[in-house]
Design a protein around this nucleic acid. Structure first.
Length: 152
DNA sequence: GCCAACGTTGGC
DNA sequence: GCCAACGTTGGC
């Protein structure tokens, strides 16, 4: 059982989109970074906890809780020439990009990025590191506990 | 394998 | 829109 922070632009997929999706599940489509992909491909397991983070928006921060509900499988958008996530170098035989399905657990009052930075307990969070741009980052059990028990 | 140029991310 | 930081690309 591990924990993750996953960034999403709320214009594209917000916590409300997830809550209102069929079965409250969305495929985590569009990851095109190898490190983030490798987390999904190699480390994620069904049942892992997810901090759902809104990025590139007026109020960046943690907007809800979710959970991994699938093993990794090929991201269909990589084969779709009309998709912004199309990757001409990827083939169905050897897909380059994978995703996992994520299920809605809870919407929470937004924990803004600035608020996360205020807590010494979270000082080492990957997502808070200077220059961090990874859309998926590991969260330690201590960080998860602090956030879900103290800040939610 | 090096590294400069370029593109992207994402907070502000 | 700015810009720092980082990832990717491609020539050599």
């Amino acid at each position: 059982m591990r924990y993750w922070l996953m960034k999403s632009e709320p214009d594209e997929a917000s916590i409300d989109h997830l809550a209102n999706a069929p079965k409250h599940i969305l495929p985590w489509t569009g990851v095109r970074n190898y490190q983030a992909r490798n987390f999904m491909r190699d480390a994620m397991q069904i049942g892992d906890g997810v901090l759902f983070y809104h990025s590139s928006c007026p109020e960046p921060g943690i907007a809800g809780l979710a959970e991994v509900v699938s093993t990794p499988y090929p991201d269909p958008t990589q084969f779709d020439a009309k998709s912004p996530y199309y990757d001409p170098k990827s083939t169905r035989e050897t897909p380059r990009w994978v995703l996992v399905d994520v299920v809605f657990r809870k919407k929470i009052p937004l924990i803004p990025l600035a608020a996360l930075r205020e807590h010494a307990e979270l000082a080492d969070m990957r997502v808070l590191a200077k220059g961090s741009r990874l859309s998926i980052t590991p969260v330690t059990e201590a960080e998860w506990r602090f956030i879900t028990r103290r800040l939610v």
